[in-house]
Simulated scan of single mutants.
Amino acid sequence: MADNKAFIFLSLEALEKHGKIKEIYWLTESYFCEEKFEISWKDEIGKTLPVLKILYTQLDKETEKKSKTDKDVYYKDEIVLDGIPFLVFNKWFEDSQTLFLEWLKSVLGDNFSELTEIENSLKSKGEN
Results as ranks from 00 to 15, higher is better:
S40I: 05
G46A: 07
G46V: 00
F86K: 01
N4M: 13
Y25I: 12
K47Y: 01
L27K: 01
Q58T: 10
T48W: 02
L12E: 04
W26H: 11
I21Q: 07
W92A: 08
N128P: 07
K47A: 07
L101T: 02
N4K: 15
K66P: 03
E29C: 13
S106L: 06
G19K: 02
M1I: 11
S106I: 08
P50K: 08
E16W: 09
F7L: 08
E62H: 14
F89T: 00
D110V: 14
N4V: 12
D60Q: 11
P85V: 03
L81A: 02
L87V: 03
P85H: 12
L87K: 12
K76L: 02
K61P: 14
S96Q: 06
N120W: 06
E78N: 11
L55S: 06
Q58S: 06
K36L: 05
W41H: 05
S121R: 15
D95W: 09
V73I: 09
D110P: 10
S113V: 12
Y31S: 10
Y31F: 11
W103Q: 07
T63M: 13
T69P: 04
Y56M: 07
K42E: 02
D43S: 00
A14F: 06
I24W: 01
L52P: 04
E62R: 11
G109S: 09
M1S: 15
L108T: 08
K66Q: 00
D60K: 12
A2Q: 12
I45R: 05
W92Y: 11
N128K: 13
N111F: 09
Q58R: 14
E117L: 12
